[in-house]
């Protein structure tokens, strides 16, 4: 249900051109999003048709995360990496941490946040939930979570679990 609604709205946003939306476009949007929702259901049969993803509080939380802590982390890390590009002062390595996330969505949010933040890059995640992270400047070979990505893990837990 969630996939259906999101793809329906996304299609309408993309075809909307200032005026109203014609009946034909609505019809095409309905068919396309129904096909996408059914395909998604076929590929992930264990996922039920649920509406919990449409909860506006979750979306608000997500936007808050995106424009709050994440944007600040992104800006800080970008400036740090910009300095390292100019000076060439790097100490690369692959470290591992275990943030203890359980759901796939939580792991995806955290891994994407880590990868988007310059200086850290998620290389692999194993079955026990260990994150293998390529770090541009290794300060500690067995780092604490906060040192690598601040409070992103708390946010991922809050958003997805």
């Amino acid at each position: 249900m969630y996939v259906f609604v999101v793809s329906f709205l996304m299609y309408l946003l993309l075809v909307w051109s200032g005026g109203g939306v014609g009946i034909f476009e609505l019809f095409v949007a309905l068919i396309l999003s129904a096909v996408i929702a059914l395909l998604f259901h076929k590929w992930h049969p264990e996922k039920k048709f649920s509406v919990s993803g449409l909860n506006p509080r979750k979306w608000f939380d997500f936007l808050h995360y995106l424009f709050g802590p994440f944007a600040v982390g992104l800006a800080k890390a970008n400036i740090d990496v910009a300095k390292r590009v100019i000076t060439g002062n790097i100490r690369p390595g692959i470290v591992r941490v275990n943030p203890g996330l359980k759901t796939d969505l939580g792991k995806t949010i955290l891994a994407d946040s880590i990868t988007l933040t310059p200086g850290t890059l998620t290389v692999d995640i194993d079955d026990e939930g260990w994150f293998y992270i390529h770090w541009l400047f290794v300060r500690d070979e067995n780092p604490a979570e906060e040192e690598l990505y601040g409070d992103f893990a708390c946010w991922a837990r809050r958003l997805a679990e």
């Binding site: 692959i94 891994a111 990868t115 890059l121 998620t122 692999d124 290794v138």
Partner: peptide, 28 residues
């Protein structure tokens, strides 16, 4: 961007390319 960067890094490591000048490599 995040997804493709992760896919490239993982593919590189799986095909046996080790990070240059690395001080530590837990995955290896």
């Amino acid at each position: 961007n995040a997804t493709s960067a992760h896919a490239i890094a993982r593919a590189a490591h799986r095909s046996g390319l080790l990070p240059a000048r690395a001080v530590v490599d837990r995955l290896e």
